[in-house]
Design a protein around this nucleic acid. Structure first.
Length: 684
DNA sequence: CCGCCTCGAGTTCT
DNA sequence: CTCGAGGCGG
């Protein structure tokens, strides 16, 4: 048994030491001891405190580990309200703010501080006699929730500050989850089968509002202090920049990316730099906050409404938005897949109004726990295709409905689910697969999309027949299958009578159809739309069989020797060729004059790019990406869509994407357009 | 049998 | 771009 006096002094020693290491680790990012050593200090302190509970105080570092649930949060009044910030979205609006400010300040010179506007949660922290007493959310700006217990678990937040700090003061900061912290949290939640957080902001807000702070302690929250709220009894710096420095000196963590900016040009420059590089930050930021550096001007400028005139948030263009998921629709794909699509309350994201978004499949919807009626977060993946990231669970009303594809399908008289296009009950979900299919090969949606696929760019490339026209031709009964396209020239009258199609465009279309008769065999095989046979496999088959006649007579043993065609793809091809309707279509194509050029036998090593793998990325001057890829293939090389270890050259045009980054990582030779053209010249 | 790598298929809006 | 799944090598 330890004697109480020595226990007490050891406890104090340990607390000082642990606080010091917390500061080194969490604020300065330069620990002096290993995690294991740190843990052993914590364990020793915990044990002493358990043996001597009379010495246990709320500011002990052991108290960060969380306390049992509380009934509810108390309310905290903010003596000085936490205002919100005015927003600007363009440089013009920023300039307007600046000139208004200059008018108000007259001749007094000033400069700025730029700070990232981190997507987190604003909090106010009150310290009395060096101790953290309360931590509160912003709330409505005047009154917030008391979340002291949860904020105490944030390791970079000092529970104690030095004696020379003001006796009473409040600092304000942003609580946030770093991107890696957020990803790890979601990984853990996946493992535990819990619903995922949609984004770091949501996860941070949810963590801080936990009733059980033992849960909060397991969340990797962090905090940057960005200003002093108020202080009593000490004279403090006169500029914001020096104030940040001072706050740092008494133990608070400030954002190392903060900068002092001498004029409005520097302000614009700072914004530009980070708008371009925001993805590289370890946290999510939705803009930059610019503050006037001179604190005396803050008082002079004052507030307008609930916004200070001395600061402004210059927001990045939104890449995410929230809206209501009104419904989940089901469309039928070319291969019969039943695809769920989100029907959204229209919302503008990145300057584009989004009404629909991809939802992939039923399992994915379940995994993300997306329900009809939810408020959802949407984003444009890779800045292009909108997708539903996830629901905002805290905004549920209880009226949301879970989605079940089978239940959502239309029903026949006997209440059985049917395909939304053909109305047949042939809905299947193959063992082990994620997608549902309509197994009816005569399903109109499928027939029409097969025509569309046939005419598409990568297939027979018939210009002028796209989604709309192929649908109309099909509905009018003019084209029931792909072979009918070549009979259209005898139905010119009906064509022109159709709305939306003038004489001239009808002629152009017929001409394009004629031209398509000469497409190479690989294109034709791809255009047939055989399951598991995409452009690559079609090309491979064309090289192997060399004529439509050989291909039609293919037996299952013929596929055994073809590299990269396995039993499933082989079976799918055999199955396709066995069907009478398909053979009939191919014969009708032939009699209409669709005679693809016979493919030359592959002679490896003969051509000068043979055996080399290329990936083309970015925009080229001399030709389109697909032309460049075609040229590579003509010369015997291969052109792939993604960079792997096997890639030999990456051809990078202007605005290259992540592929160039990956190429650098893997140390793959990168050619610019000029070098690429030189190579083509040389190799001819 | 598992973990790559590739390929296929579907997706939004102007 | 994304996800799922086929093919194949370890």
């Amino acid at each position: 048994m330890t004697n109480p006096d020595s226990a007490r002094s050891r406890i104090e020693e340990l607390r000082t030491e642990i606080n010091h290491h917390n500061y080194r680790y969490h604020v300065l990012d330069s620990p002096e001891i290993s995690d294991a050593e740190y843990d052993s200090l914590i364990r020793e302190l915990k044990q002493l405190e358990e043996e001597n509970p009379q010495f246990l105080t709320p500011d002990s570092p052991t108290q960060r580990v969380g306390a049992p649930p509380v009934e509810a949060f108390g309310v905290v009044e903010h003596p000085v309200p936490l205002l919100s910030l005015g927003n600007v979205f363009t440089e013009e609006e920023l300039e307007n703010w600046y000139s208004r400010t200059v008018k108000l300040t007259g001749d007094v010179p000033f400069d700025f501080v730029g700070e990232h506007k981190i997507d987190g949660l604003a909090v106010a922290l009150t310290y009395v006699d060096g101790q953290l007493i309360t931590g509160a959310t912003r709330g409505d700006g005047f009154r917030g929730e008391n979340i002291t217990r949860n904020l105490r678990t944030i390791r970079s937040l000092p529970l104690l500050v030095p004696k020379d700090a003001p006796p009473r003061f409040e600092v304000r900061g942003e609580v946030y989850l770093s991107r890696p912290g957020f990803e790890k949290l979601n990984r853990d939640r996946t493992a535990e089968g819990l619903p995922l957080f949609a984004n770091p902001r949501n996860a941070a807000a949810g963590s801080v509002r936990q009733l059980d702070s033992r849960i909060t302690t397991r969340r990797p929250l962090d905090i940057y202090i960005y200003m002093l709220g108020w202080a009593e009894g000490k004279s403090l710096p006169h500029t914001h920049w020096e104030m940040l420095d001072y706050l740092k000196s008494i133990g608070f963590k400030t954002n190392p990316n903060n900068r002092r900016l001498k004029d409005i040009e520097a302000v614009k420059q700072f914004y530009q730099t980070w708008e371009e590089n925001r993805e590289s930050l370890p946290y999510e930021a939705d803009g930059i906050v610019f503050k006037i550096n001179q604190l005396n001007l803050h008082d002079e400028l004052g507030d307008i409404g609930h916004e200070p005139r001395w600061a402004i948030a210059y927001k990045f263009p939104a890449v995410q938005g929230t809206t209501r998921l009104n419904d989940i629709g089901i469309s039928v794909g070319r291969t019969g897949t039943l695809n769920p699509t989100a029907i959204l309350e229209p919302v503008s994201v990145g300057g584009v109004t989004i009404k629909n978004a991809a939802l992939h499949n039923e399992d994915d919807i379940r995994r993300k726990d997306i329900r009809i009626g939810d408020t959802v977060i949407i984003q444009r993946a890779g800045e292009v295709i909108p997708e539903v990231v996830g629901p905002i669970v805290s905004q549920r009303t209880g009226k949301e409905k879970e989605f079940s594809l089978m239940d959502r399908l239309p029903k026949n008289d006997r209440g059985q689910p049917v395909c939304p296009s053909c109305g047949k009950t042939s809905i299947v979900r193959p063992e082990g697969e994620v997608m549902y299919y309509c197994a009816n090969a005569a399903c109109p949606a499928q027939l029409q999309q097969r025509i569309e696929h046939f005419t598409s760019r990568g297939a027979m490339d018939i210009r002028g027949i796209g989604e709309n026209l192929s649908a109309t031709l099909f509905e009018k009964g003019l084209v029931r299958d792909i072979a009918d396209l070549y009979c259209l020239k005898d139905k010119k009258e009906e064509l022109v009578n159709m709305e939306k199609l003038g004489e001239k465009s009808a002629e152009n279309m017929l001409e394009a159809i004629e031209k398509s008769k000469q497409r190479p065999l690989g294109r034709l095989i791809y255009a047939l739309g055989i399951k598991h046979v995409g452009s690559e496999t079609a090309e491979l088959l064309a090289g192997h069989f060399r004529s439509m006649k050989n291909f039609l007579n293919a037996k299952s043993e013929d596929f055994q020797n073809i590299e990269s065609i396995g039993p499933i793809t082989a079976e799918s091809i055999i199955d396709f060729l066995k069907q009478e309707e398909n053979r009939d279509i191919i014969h009708r194509l032939e009699s209409a004059g669709v005679f693809p050029e016979e493919q030359a036998a592959i002679s490896p090593g003969e051509l000068l790019l043979s055996g080399y793998e290329f990936v083309v990325t970015g925009r080229l001057e001399a030709f389109s990406r697909s032309k460049a890829e075609a040229r590579i293939k003509e010369l015997g090389g291969s052109a792939k869509g993604s960079v792997t270890r096997k890639t030999d050259y990456v051809v990078a045009g202007s605005d290259p994407g992540s592929k160039l980054t990956r190429a650098r990582e893997l140390g793959i030779k990168v050619l610019d357009e000029k070098q690429f053209l030189e190579m083509l010249e040389k190799k001819q």
